[in-house]
């Protein structure tokens, strides 16, 4: 497994992946920047609420799809699957390594988001002394955990579909309704693409937005845990059984 991970790092198209991981959160923060937001801890929290809503609603789920596609792309492009899977490596190792790299990149993206957010808000005048670490920390962690099920779904799709565009189109189609799903108490907790915004706002300081209020966190985690298990096992079984014909 360690060797497989090393190999995944060797194969990655780093310039492209790096650009995506840096640029995604950056754009989200810049679009969500709330100028003229006064000062102090409350201003930080308010600004963070604005930023997470944009980021966790749209950019983070999209990022999961793009990165899943990028993780599989080297194999699809040059007939890598048939060479890789003819080697003495198990298919679950191959798939597992890709999932690890994917969730690792998503963790990095969240850290980048946090860092860019802090820098940006300081640039518009907020004080470093008031950074709401205790709220941002759990929020960033929660968002990452909440993105795992949909990362697993996207890896499932990307490992099967050769077309980068098709996997991405599906991702966009499923991400956009998250805006509505997250507002619904019935659908919200069940919709994978709505989980990041629910988790980030629910655990974080943006309770003022009221997004996750009234929802049991336990339910959310059970849905996330269950969704992750289903998507990961489903993807793995599909991958292990598939005929490699490309």
């Amino acid at each position: 497994m360690l060797r497989m991970l090393r190999v995944e790092f060797m194969k990655m198209q780093w310039p492209l992946v790096g650009l995506v991981v840096l640029l995604g959160p950056l754009i989200a923060v810049v679009l969500g920047l709330n100028p003229g937001a006064g000062a102090g801890a409350e201003a930080w929290k308010l600004a963070y609420g604005f930023a997470t809503v944009r980021y966790a609603w749209l950019f983070y789920p999209l990022l999961a799809g793009v990165l899943a596609a990028l993780v599989c792309r080297p194999e699809h492009m040059g007939g890598g699957w048939k060479q890789l899977l003819a080697l003495p490596v198990s298919r679950s190792t191959v798939y597992g390594a890709k999932f690890f790299v994917l969730v690792g990149l998503l963790a990095v993206a969240n850290l980048v988001f946090g860092a860019v957010f802090i820098v940006a808000e300081m640039a518009v005048g907020l004080s470093a002394a008031d950074i709401p670490w205790s709220e941002m920390g759990p929020s960033l962690l929660g968002g990452w955990i909440a993105v795992l099920p949909l990362a697993a779904v996207q890896l499932w799709v990307s490992s099967r579909w050769k077309s980068f565009g098709a996997a991405l189109a599906l991702n966009v189609c499923l991400t956009l309704p998250a805006i509505f799903a997250a507002q619904s108490h019935e659908i919200g907790p069940w919709y994978p693409w709505a989980q990041p915004v629910l988790a980030m706002s629910g655990l974080g300081p943006s309770s003022a937005k009221g997004m996750a209020l009234g929802l049991s966190m336990t339910t959310l985690w059970v849905v996330i845990g269950g969704g992750l298990a289903v998507a990961l096992i489903g993807g793995l079984v599909t991958f292990a059984r598939a005929d490699v014909r490309q």
Binding site: M10, K11, Q13, P74, M77, G78, G79, G80, K82, L84
Partner: peptide, 12 residues
């Protein structure tokens, strides 16, 4: 094995 067209990672 070399299965059908050669496999390679173009960017490497």
């Amino acid at each position: 094995a070399l299965v059908e067209s050669p496999s390679y990672y173009a960017h490497l």
